[in-house]
Design a protein around this nucleic acid. Structure first.
Length: 289
DNA sequence: CGTTCAACCTGGGCGC
DNA sequence: TGCGCCCAGGTTGAAC
C-alpha cells in the first residue's frame, strides 16, 4: 500500500518521538511467519536497545530511523511494501505486530510504543550503518525523490527507454516513491496515455509529467495519503488518509471520467492494473484541458 | 535491453 | 457455510 505520500505521512506522524530513547525493543511471538530482517530479529533488538532516535528520514517508499549511541550510529530502514504501517496508536490486530520499540523521552517516566505492523508480512527491516544506508537508500539504489523530480531527471533517465511510461514511473531507479495508485493519478492529470513509449515523449510531455508528479504527490501528502475503502492504510495515529476522495482514475474502471464523463478503462501492464481515461489521455499530444 | 512469471504473504469479495 | 478463484497500494530474481 504505502507509496511516497503514505510513507511521508508515517514519517511526520512519528517525528515527535525524535530525541527519545529506545528503552526496549521486541519482535512479538504473534505472527505465524517472521518478516524479512537483516540481521536477525535478535540481533536487531540487541543492537538498537538504549539508542536514541535522532532523525526520521524518508527515501522514496522507505523510512529510515537514525539511532545514535555515544560511540556510533545505526539506521533502521523500514520498507512497508504492501501492508506495513508505522503506528503510535493501538494496532488494528495484535497478531500482525512485527516490531515494538518502547520509547522514552528524556526526563519523562512514560513510555510510548512505536510499532511496525504488517498484515501480509511482505515488509522488510534492515539495520545498517551509514555505509549500508548509502547502499540501500542512496542514489545508486533510488532515483530522485518524487517530490523533487525535474523534467531533466526524467528525460535523462528514461528518454531513450522503449518501456511504456506507466511501467517506467514505477521504476524506483528512475523516480523514487511512485506506486500503482499515484502512477495512474499522475498520468491522468498530465494527460498522458499509460502505454506511450518513453522514447516517444516530447520535451513538453516530460515537463508536464515532472511538474504533475511533484504536484500530485505533494497534494497527496497534504491529504495524508490514500486509504482505499478505509482498509489497511492509516496514519501513525490511525486516522485514514483523505486523498482517495480526490482519485480521478484509480479503481474507477467503467465509471465516468470526472473531467470528460467518458468511461475509465482498466488495462494490465507488467501484471498490474492501470486505470486511465482514453479521452483525456491520448496516445500522443494533449487533446483537451 | 525489456518483458513475463513466480514467489513472498494475508484476507476480502465473488460465484457456485 | 464452504470452496475455489481472483484481486490488492511492492519488490526481487530467474527465464526467455
Amino acid at each position: 500500500m504505502p507509496e511516497l505520500p503514505e510513507v511521508e505521512t508515517m514519517r511526520r506522524g512519528i517525528l515527535h518521538l525524535v530525541g527519545s530513547r529506545i528503552v526496549r525493543a521486541e519482535f512479538p511471538r504473534g505472527p505465524k511467519r517472521p518478516i524479512s530482517t537483516h540481521p536477525t530479529p535478535a540481533a536487531i533488538v540487541a543492537d538498537i536497545r538504549d539508542g536514541r532516535l535522532s532523525a526520521v528520514e524518508r527515501f522514496g517508499k522507505r523510512l529510515a530511523l537514525a539511532i545514535t549511541f555515544p560511540t556510533h550510529e545505526r539506521w533502521l530502514v523500514i520498507e512497508p511494501r504492501m501492508t506495513g504501517l508505522m503506528l503510535v496508536a493501538a494496532p488494528p490486530t495484535a497478531d500482525h505486530v512485527r516490531l515494538v520499540m518502547h520509547m522514552q523521552q528524556a526526563g519523562e517516566r512514560r513510555r510510548q510504543p512505536l510499532v511496525f505492523w504488517d498484515q501480509r508480512g511482505l515488509g522488510t527491516l534492515r539495520l545498517v550503518d551509514a555505509c549500508g544506508l548509502e547502499q540501500v537508500c542512496g542514489p545508486r539504489a533510488l532515483g530522485p525523490d518524487g517530490l523533487a523530480v525535474t523534467p531533466d531527471d526524467l528525460a535523462t533517465s528514461l528518454g531513450h527507454s522503449r518501456r511504456a511510461i506507466k511501467v517506467a514511473l514505477l521504476d524506483q531507479h528512475a523516480v523514487a516513491g511512485i506506486g500503482n495508485i499515484y502512477a495512474a493519478e499522475i498520468l491522468h492529470r498530465a494527460g498522458i496515455h499509460p502505454r506511450v513509449a518513453c522514447r516517444r515523449m516530447s520535451r513538453r510531455a516530460w515537463t508536464r509529467l515532472a511538474d504533475t508528479t511533484r504536484a500530485v504527490l505533494a497534494e497527496a501528502v497534504r491529504f495524508e495519503g490514500s486509504s482505499i475503502g478505509d482498509k489497511l492504510y492509516q496514519t501513525p495515529a490511525r486516522r485514514p488518509g483523505r486523498f482517495q476522495h480526490r482519485h480521478r482514475v484509480y479503481g474507477r474502471a467503467g465509471q465516468p471520467c470526472v473531467t470528460c464523463r467518458s468511461a475509465i478503462h482498466r488495462i494490465v501492464q507488467g501484471q498490474r492494473s492501470t486505470f486511465f481515461c482514453p479521452q483525456c489521455q491520448p496516445r500522443s499530444g494533449r487533446s483537451g484541458g
